[in-house]
């Protein structure tokens, strides 16, 4: 039986009282290891809630430094920390919130040479990155390593979220079943070019954190095989089916992708 400290019993009381969590669930959270790639608009709220929930080990990957233009949505960071690395800023905030959490930082741009080493010891990965090439790389690496991936993206007033459960990769679709390959550079704008309402990150990042917690606890129905689409202007949430595509280049019947590949990083608005 896991021995909670008195402070932990108080800290997690509202979790422990939930029949779906209980002491056993809280123990699972404290023993879990979650990696969040991108400490930005999605990663900020997701990391905040995962740390508050007592996820025992949180890895954070980001190569950027805090900029004034981040502060409208990237709530882990503060005005005083403009100019310092995002992982350092995030780590400081999260440790202040919950000292139970071991924070591991990776102040690096994720690429095909380092991604497997970074993700391999984690139970779950959250994708909060801001470009297609990295999203495809994370999907492919998590697929090869059989690590479940909670993926979300946002733009303007819209958000999307889904879960790829690569522990059961014969059953779960992957990001390439949804979109087989990245759009040509220049066709889909980034948040930098197209804008993003800051609070959208709050909504979608919290959905990611919730899905991650459900996966760790093994409760409810995570968004596996479903794509959640949110339109904040009409405040409509819609779930559509995300099927495993037999012709998927990664996880289909005749896969063409058998190793990690990198696409060009470039962006410019058009769609």
């Amino acid at each position: 039986m896991f021995q909670f400290t008195e402070e932990q019993i108080k800290r997690y009381a509202r979790h422990i009282i939930l029949p779906e969590v209980g002491g056993k669930g809280q123990e699972k959270l404290l023993k879990s290891r979650v990696l969040v790639i991108g400490a930005g608009g999605l990663g900020s709220p997701a990391l905040f809630y995962l740390a508050a929930a007592g996820v025992g080990t949180l890895g954070i990957v980001d190569y950027d430094v805090v900029d004034f233009s981040n502060l409208q949505r990237q709530i882990l960071h503060t005005t005083q920390r403009v100019g310092i690395s995002k992982v350092e800023s995030a780590s400081e905030t999260l440790k202040a919130l919950n000292p139970d959490v071991k924070v591991i930082t990776y102040n690096t741009m994720i690429n095909k040479d380092n991604i497997v080493d970074i993700i391999k010891d984690y139970d779950l990965v959250l994708d909060g990155t801001d470009n297609f090439p990295t999203r495809f790389l994370i999907n492919d690496a998590c697929y090869f390593e059989r690590i479940p991936l909670v993926s979300a993206a946002m733009l303007r007033f819209e958000g999307q979220c889904t879960v790829f459960d690569f522990r059961h990769r014969d059953l779960s679709p992957c990001y390439r079943c949804l979109f087989p390959e990245p759009p040509p550079p220049g066709l889909i704008p980034s948040c930098q070019e197209a804008g993003i309402l800051g609070s959208i990150g709050g909504i979608m990042g919290c959905i990611q954190a919730t899905e991650a917690i459900k996966m760790i606890l093994g409760i409810g129905e995570p968004l596996v095989g479903k794509l959640l689409i949110m339109d904040a202007l009409s405040m409509e949430f819609k779930k559509v089916k995300l099927r495993k595509d037999p012709s998927c280049p990664l996880c289909g019947d005749e896969p063409k992708i058998t190793g990690l590949i990198e696409y060009d990083q470039s962006c410019e608005a058009r769609f």
Binding site: D127, D130, M154, L155, I188, I229
Partner: peptide, 26 residues
Amino acid sequence: IRFLKGTETELKDGDVLSIVPAIAGG
């Protein structure tokens, strides 16, 4: 619609057709 009849998929009254582009902002 890729798992129906693609662009030839027939419509009926009251259907909702959603256009969902890939987005990558984070």
